[in-house]
Amino acid sequence: MSTPAKIFPTWAFFSVVINGILMLAIALLILRQQGLTAFFGSAHSATPVKHNSQPQVTPTPKLGPRHKFTYPQWVDVLKKEAKAKAEKPPQNLSILAGDSLSLWFPTELLPEDRNWLNQGISGETSDGLLKRLDLFDRTQPHTIFVMIGINDLIRGASDETILENQQQIISYLRRVHPKAQIVVQSILPHGGEEATWERREKLLAIPNSRIRKLNQQLQDIATKANVKYLNLHPLFTNKQGNLRPEFSTDGLHLSPQGYLVWRSALQIYTQIELDKGYKGEVGTRGQGE
Results as ranks from 00 to 15, higher is better:
residue 288 G to Q: 14
residue 268 I to V: 04
residue 228 K to R: 02
residue 158 S to P: 08
residue 239 K to L: 04
residue 266 L to H: 03
residue 51 H to C: 14
residue 145 F to G: 01
residue 215 N to Q: 12
residue 192 G to F: 00
residue 216 Q to E: 10
residue 63 L to E: 15
residue 285 R to P: 03
residue 88 K to Q: 06
residue 47 T to D: 12
residue 199 R to I: 05
residue 35 G to S: 13
residue 26 I to S: 02
residue 144 I to C: 00
residue 147 M to I: 09
residue 59 P to F: 14
residue 148 I to V: 07
residue 172 Y to G: 00
residue 232 L to I: 13
residue 11 W to C: 02
residue 121 I to E: 06
residue 105 F to V: 06
residue 74 W to S: 07
residue 272 I to P: 07
residue 53 S to N: 07
residue 276 K to R: 15
residue 178 P to N: 11
residue 108 E to W: 01
residue 34 Q to A: 12
residue 192 G to N: 00
residue 250 D to F: 00
residue 286 G to L: 09
residue 55 P to K: 08
residue 229 Y to D: 00
residue 65 P to M: 13
residue 125 T to R: 15
residue 87 E to M: 01
residue 108 E to V: 02
residue 122 S to T: 10
residue 257 Q to D: 12
residue 288 G to T: 14
residue 97 A to R: 03
residue 85 K to S: 08
residue 265 A to K: 01
residue 61 P to W: 07
residue 60 T to W: 12
residue 163 L to N: 11
residue 242 N to K: 10
residue 133 L to G: 05
residue 200 R to T: 06
residue 263 R to P: 01
residue 70 T to P: 11
residue 110 L to I: 02
residue 22 L to H: 01
residue 48 P to L: 13
residue 217 Q to T: 06
residue 116 W to N: 08
residue 248 S to W: 04
residue 284 T to R: 01
residue 135 L to W: 05
residue 106 P to A: 01
residue 184 V to K: 03
residue 194 E to I: 01
residue 175 R to N: 07
residue 180 A to C: 08
residue 213 K to F: 09
residue 1 M to P: 12
residue 178 P to A: 06
residue 251 G to R: 01
residue 103 L to M: 03
residue 66 R to T: 14
residue 139 T to Q: 11
residue 178 P to M: 10
residue 195 A to T: 01
residue 96 L to M: 09
residue 192 G to S: 02
residue 109 L to R: 00
residue 169 I to N: 00
residue 192 G to D: 04
residue 256 P to L: 04
residue 169 I to Q: 02
residue 55 P to W: 06
residue 88 K to F: 02
residue 77 V to W: 09
residue 10 T to V: 06
residue 129 L to V: 11
residue 51 H to Q: 15
residue 45 S to T: 08
residue 244 R to M: 09
residue 135 L to F: 10
residue 104 W to I: 03
residue 157 A to C: 08
residue 246 E to D: 05
residue 8 F to H: 10
residue 142 H to S: 13
residue 136 F to M: 13
residue 110 L to H: 04
residue 226 N to D: 02
residue 6 K to I: 12
residue 116 W to G: 03
residue 181 Q to V: 13
residue 37 T to P: 01
residue 68 K to W: 06
residue 14 F to P: 00
residue 229 Y to Q: 04
residue 182 I to N: 05
residue 269 Y to F: 10
residue 153 L to V: 00
residue 211 I to W: 12
residue 31 L to V: 15
residue 206 I to F: 05
residue 216 Q to H: 08
residue 222 A to H: 05
residue 202 K to G: 05
residue 207 P to E: 06
residue 211 I to Q: 12
residue 100 S to I: 10
residue 123 G to R: 15
residue 181 Q to N: 13
residue 210 R to L: 12
residue 210 R to V: 08
residue 160 E to W: 08
residue 178 P to G: 10
residue 156 G to P: 02
residue 266 L to A: 05
residue 90 P to F: 12
